[in-house]
């Protein structure tokens, strides 16, 4: 019957680009934070030696992969294909990713609104969420970070200042 029109889902290139860049930068920032921040280092040390984590968007990306290699935390690019992932945090669709990554919804609220699908062991997933919260506090101005985390931490000005410089410069340079 001709009366049924077949519609193929289109793309959302602008939002995809934003999310890709954001994930790329966050991946590098996590790698940097593991070197700069004591608490982030401790969280990673509690995880398995070959720990691999991916954050991204259903059904087919973009993704970013973080992993431990020989004790070092490394950003492993944007392709989780073929890797064994310990934890995968998947945002249900590109609009959701855009909502969360433009800080209009905190990770906690997004979780409460079933916007994320967590795969893997809960303790490891929680450790990664704590890591991402810390990184967000470093990267974002307080006004925005307050929206992204449940409770804005009361760090010493030194930790925040030097940490922020360290993480930004390392993330830019990719070291």
């Amino acid at each position: 019957m001709e009366i049924v029109e077949v519609v193929r889902a289109g793309g959302k290139p602008f939002k995809r680009a934003y999310v890709s860049i954001f994930l790329w930068f966050t991946g590098r920032a996590i790698q940097a934070a593991a070197k700069v921040d004591e608490q982030v280092r401790r969280e990673f040390n509690s995880l398995p030696d070959d720990f691999t984590f991916s954050l991204g968007v259903l059904p087919d990306g973009p993704w970013m992969v973080i992993g431990r290699e020989k004790g070092q935390v490394k950003y492993l690019g944007g392709d989780p294909e073929g890797r064994h992932l310990h934890v995968r945090l998947a945002m249900k669709n590109i609009e959701t990713a855009f909502l969360i990554l433009s800080f209009r919804e905190s990770t906690a609220l997004a979780t409460a609104r079933n916007r994320l699908i967590t795969e893997g062991e809960v303790p490891q997933a929680l450790a990664m969420i704590r890591v991402m919260d810390i990184v967000e506090v470093y990267l974002l101005p307080k006004m925005i970070a307050r929206l992204a985390v449940k409770r804005y931490p009361s760090w010493t000005p030194g930790r925040k200042f030097f940490g922020r410089i360290g993480i930004y410069s390392r993330a830019m340079l990719g070291i």
Binding site: E5, V6, V7, A9, G10, N93, I94
Partner: peptide, 10 residues
């Protein structure tokens, strides 16, 4: 959008 699915519309 971005789901890769196709759907019929009547």
């Amino acid at each position: 959008g971005d789901s890769g699915m196709s759907l019929g519309v009547f």
